[in-house]
Nucleic acid binder design. Structure first.
Length: 273
DNA sequence: ACACGTGTTATGCG
DNA sequence: TCGCATAACACGTG
């Protein structure tokens, strides 16, 4: 799930529930997820401190810590979720509302908790991640991320996305170009703008890039508002036998930018967009 | 049993 | 060195 909208929800949960609480203990024993740190390294850096602010850029989020402590970087990967609980153990509302209750259910598989902060008040912040592709690290390097997809202005969007010769979808997925767009949000954006995902960016004119920017902002904000990228208009039609919800033509499948891609065979065909 | 996947990154090639 | 494509990563799910 985690693309920009889901990460923003996770950040908001941390902001609403995990700040200004003293860290009593940390479980950082999963050194696959807590890379490249040795067990105990993140723990000793955080115990006694408090998270002071929760920030996000694209799909990366991070927390600053008190007393000039290190920055705690968290990336959800493909399946990570953040759960914050109050002193009585109940989850803070606001995130994890997409689907699957296992992250918050009391009988969840504890092996899927890959990183846990225990607060002195008894509550916790957990990274729940079945696939283990999430990452937790101190002082993450964020320099290679492009501007946030929800914030980037149209002129910068056109100049960055329009550079090069890659297919437009691959360009949208490149986090160093624009940060936050994943496979589903890219398909939704391209469908909204009626642009062929396979089209090279050097064939896109000024107005098409402008339309893409508008569609991206619209799709991103709608997804944040509605609870995730799965709420996009074309999402349920990304299946074999699916049809374009606008014109009724068959949806077409291809691999673009290394990812499964669904698009309208007519409106997003080679002769359009 | 087997293919697939919402993300990132190392590697290879022109 | 740059831009781009692909494989690999871990592992649950259909």
């Amino acid at each position: 799930m985690p693309e920009l909208p889901e990460v923003e929800s996770a950040r908001a949960v941390i902001e609403a529930g995990a700040l200004d609480r003293e860290v009593a203990d940390v479980d950082d024993t999963d050194t696959w997820v807590c890379r490249p740190h040795a067990t105990g390294e993140i723990r000793s850096a955080l115990v006694g401190r408090r998270l002071t602010v929760a920030l996000r850029r694209g799909k990366s989020m991070w927390c600053e810590t008190s007393s000039d402590g290190p920055v705690l970087g968290i990336h959800l990967g493909m399946s990570g979720r953040i759960v914050v609980t109050d002193p009585s153990g109940d989850p803070v509302e606001g995130g994890d509302r997409v689907r699957g209750l296992t992250a918050t259910s009391p009988d969840r598989d504890l092996a899927w908790d890959r990183f846990t902060i225990r607060f002195a008040d008894g509550g916790e912040l957990r990274l729940f991640d079945k696939r283990r592709l999430g990452r937790v690290r101190l002082d993450p390097d964020l320099d290679r991320l492009g501007p946030d997809a929800a914030e980037v202005g149209v002129a910068e969007f056109r100049s960055r996305v329009g550079r090069g010769t890659a297919p437009v979808k691959a360009r949208l997925l490149d986090q160093s170009v624009i940060a936050g767009v994943g496979n589903l949000l890219a398909d939704e954006t391209l469908w909204q703008a009626a642009v062929d995902p396979r089209r090279r960016v050097d064939t896109l004119d000024h107005d098409t890039l402008t339309a893409l920017h508008r569609s991206l902002r619209k799709a991103t904000r709608a997804a944040i508002r509605n609870g995730g990228v799965h709420t996009g208009e074309v999402m349920e039609h990304r299946v074999a036998g699916g049809h374009c919800p606008r014109c009724g033509a068959p949806m077409q499948r291809a691999t673009v930018g290394g990812r499964t891609t669904w698009f309208c065979s007519v409106e997003q065909g080679p002769a359009s967009g």
